[in-house]
Amino acid sequence: MLIYTLKRVLLALLVALTVSILTFGLLHLSSDPAVALAGEDATEEDIQLVRVQYGFDKPLPVQYMTWLTNALQGDLGTSYYFGIPVSTLLAQRLPVTLTLGSCALIYAILFAVPLGVLAAMRPNTWLDRFCLSLAVSAQAMPSFWFGLMLIVVFCLWFPLLPVSGSDTWKHFIMPTIVLGTNAMPAIMRLTRTGMMDVLATDYIRTARAKGLRPNTVLLKHALRNAVIPVIAVIGIQAGYMMGGTVIIETIFALNGMGLLAYESIMYFDLACMEAVVLLLCLVFITTTFVADILNAWLDPRIRIR
C-alpha cells in the first residue's frame, strides 16, 4: 500500500510538471504576449519595451525556469489586469469554487448513486428506463443553456432565487444544480452497470444462500463492491467540474476561479491564466489521486498484497 501510494504521488508530480510546461509553452508560443499587453495603439518601440520589462525577450526555457522557481516559492507573478499578486487573487477566488464544486459533487452523488442502484435492482422496468432517460437527457443538456433556463424559471417566472453573485447560500443553489447535473450521467450509469455486474456474481448468491436478509445482501455485500469503480469516476468527474466552473461561474457571476479564468483569458492576463490552469490541473490530479487511494483502500485485493 505504501509503495503503491508513493508511486502514485510520483506519477502525480510528474504529470503536474508536464502540464505546467505544456501550458507555459502553449500560452507563450501561440501568440506574442507583449503585443496583446501593450495594447492596440502601441508602437513597435512600446512593444519592445514591454517585452524587456516582462522578460519576454529571454529564451522560453529560461522564462519557464524563472517562472517555476518563483512559483515554487509561492510567487506566481502579478496579474496584468487586476494589478495584484496572482497568489492573492487565487486565495480570494479558490474558496468559492471549492464550495461550489463540493456542493455539486454531493448533489450529484446523492441523486446518481441511489438512482443507479434502483435501476440495477429492477433492470428493464419503467424505473430503469426512467433513470436511463434522465441520464441521457442530462448528458445532452448544454450546461450554459440549462443555467440560463434555470434563471428564466427561478428568477423571472417564480422569483425565488438571486440571479447572480456569490454572497449568500442562495446564490449557490442554481450553480450547484447545473454543475452537478453535468456529472450525474456518468456516475449513474457506472453505478448501474457496476451494481448489475456485482448482483450477478457468485458471492452474492453465496450471501443469499447464507440466508442473509435482502437489505444486508444489497447494502453490505453488493454496494461495497459496486462503488469501487464508481469512486474512480467520481474522482474524474470532480476534476471535470473544475473545468466546468468556467462556464457556470460566468453565467451566474459567481466570483470564483472559473470566472477568474474567464476574465484572465478575455484580457490576455498570461500570468493569471497560467496559474489558474495549473491550479485547476492540480485540483484534478488531487481528486483523481484521492479517488485512487480510496479505491485501493476499499479493495483488499489492492490494499493487501
Partner: peptide, 23 residues
C-alpha cells in the same frame, strides 16, 4: 498512457478557451 494521463489532467475547456482566444 502518460500522454493520456497528462491530457486528462488538463482542464479541457479552459485550455481550449485560452488557445482559441490567443490564436
Amino acid at each position: 498512457n502518460y500522454l493520456i494521463t497528462v491530457r486528462l489532467s488538463l482542464p479541457g475547456i479552459l485550455v481550449a478557451l485560452a488557445a482559441v482566444q490567443l490564436i
